[in-house]
Amino acid sequence: MDLTFDLVVVGAGVVGAACAYHATRSGLSVCVVDRASLAAGTTGAGEGNVLVSDKEPGPELGLALLSNALWRSMAAVPVCGTTFGARAELDPKGGLVVAASAASLSDLADLAQRQRAAGVEAEPVAADALRQHEPNLAADLAGGYRYPQDMQVQPMLATALLLRLARDAGAVLLLGEAVTGFTRHRGRVTGVRTPRRELAAGAVVNCAGTWAGEVAALAGVHVPVAPRRGFVLVTEALPRVVRHKVYLADYVTGVASDSAALQASPVVEGTPSGTVLIGATRERVGFDRTWSPDAVRKLAAGAVRLFPFLADVIALRGYRGFRPYCPDHLPIIGPDPRAPGLWHACGHEGAGIGLSAATGRLITQSLRAEATDLPLDPFRPERFDEVAA
C-alpha cells in the first residue's frame, strides 16, 4: 500500500522524533520510518546530555541554548497522564566542570567568560567550595565552574514520548522498514521506497544518525558522517551521591579532538533510578563493536579520580554506541540543494539528544519556508563539497 504525506522522516531516534513532533504540531502530515525500532541506534546508547557547558561559543552553542530553552518548555507538556518532564526524567540538575590543575582552571575560566558573553550561565566555584556542591568529590581539585542550565533526560523515554505526541497528532510510525531508495520527479525527491511500499512526500528529512551518509548516498549526495565509538559504565543503584553532571575540564578538548585514537575523560552523573553513569570515551574505529577493556579501564580510573568512593562500587554493566561524527564538529541541518526535496538533520556526534529539540524546530521552520530561529548557513549540507573544491 502506497501512502502520501507532507513529510517522511527517515530515522526513529531522538532527532527524528523531535522533527516529527515539531512538524505535526505545525500541521504537517508526517510518517516516520526506521529499519529497526525506535531509539535503536545512537539514541539508545546515549547518556541523555542536554548541555551548554561543553560547547565553545559559535553556531553549536547557539543551537544548544535554543534547544535548552525548548526542552525546558517541553517539561510541562501533558503526556501519558503526567508531564513530559516527569515521564522523560528531565532533570535540570546543572553541571559542574572541575579542573585538576591551576593551568586547566585558567583555561576553563577563559572558556566560561566567553560562554557567558554568548548567554551561558557559568558560576565560578573555588576549590574549597567544590564539596559544598558535590560532597563526595576528590579533595585535591583546583576549582571549577557550575553551569545551572545543564540538564539530563532519559533518551529512550524522551524519544518514545515525542513519537507518542506526534502519533497523537496524526503521525504514522513504520518500524522494521528500511529505506532502500528515493523516488523523484523531474529531479526532485518526492518520497522513499521500502521493501513493502512507496511513501510519497512533499519532503524527506534524513535523520538516520550514524548511518545518515548511507541514506544520503541513496539520493546521490554525500554527507561525511562517520561513526565515533564510545563506552559507558553503569553502577549498582546508590543513594543520590552525585548531584550534578560532573566532568573534568579536558572533556571539552576531547569532544573537539580530530584524532581517531582513543580519547577518555571522566564524566560522572547520577540518575533518578540511583545508578551512576560513567563516561566518556571517543575513538574512530568504524562500526567495530568489539568490547575494549582499555577504554573501560580508563573510564573506571577517571571516575575514581573524581569520586574516590566509586572504587568500592560495583559496575553492573557497560554499553557502547556510535556517535555520528562530522569533520568540522557541526551537525548537518537543512535542505540539500543537490537533491531538492531532501533535508538533513544528522551529524550531531555526542550532542544529538540535547540538540534534537532545536533541530526539529529549525527543520520544521525551514520546511514551511518560515524565518528560522537561528541561521542555518553554518549547518548547510553542501558545505563539505565547498571545502573539497
Rank of each mutant, 00 (worst) to 15 (best):
A36D: 15
V304A: 13
R289P: 08
G279H: 01
M74A: 09
C80K: 12
A339C: 08
T275G: 14
W211D: 10
Q115C: 04
A40Y: 06
R131E: 13
G254V: 03
G170Y: 06
V14H: 07
V205R: 00
P335M: 07
A122M: 04
D34N: 08
E134Y: 04
T183M: 10
V98A: 02
A64N: 00
K93S: 15
V387N: 12
V204I: 04
V232K: 12
L218T: 05
G85C: 11
V313A: 14
Q152Y: 08
V304G: 10
V205C: 04
V32E: 02
A369E: 15
D373P: 01
D377S: 12
T271N: 12
A203S: 13
A315D: 11
V204S: 00
E47Y: 09
T271I: 11
G191D: 00
T194Q: 05
D2V: 07
V205W: 01
D110S: 14
G58N: 07
G347R: 08
V9I: 03
A358K: 03
L355Q: 09
R197Y: 05
V276W: 04
L161W: 07
A112H: 04
A217V: 00
S257D: 12
V276K: 06
D373V: 00
A138V: 10
A226V: 15
G254I: 01
Q263L: 08
L108Y: 03
V32H: 01
G187I: 02
G27T: 02
R35A: 13
G341L: 01
A261H: 14
R197H: 08
A311K: 11
H185T: 12
V14T: 06
T271K: 12
G347E: 08
C326F: 07
L28M: 03
V285E: 06
A226G: 11
T83V: 13
D288I: 06
H185R: 13
H348M: 10
R380E: 15
L277R: 07
V79S: 07
A17V: 07
A139S: 13
W343L: 15
K298M: 14
T210F: 02
C31N: 00
G209T: 07
L51D: 04
R25H: 08
A357C: 09
G279C: 04
T190H: 09
P57R: 05
D312A: 14
D91C: 10
L310Q: 03
F307P: 00
M151D: 03
L376W: 03
S73K: 10
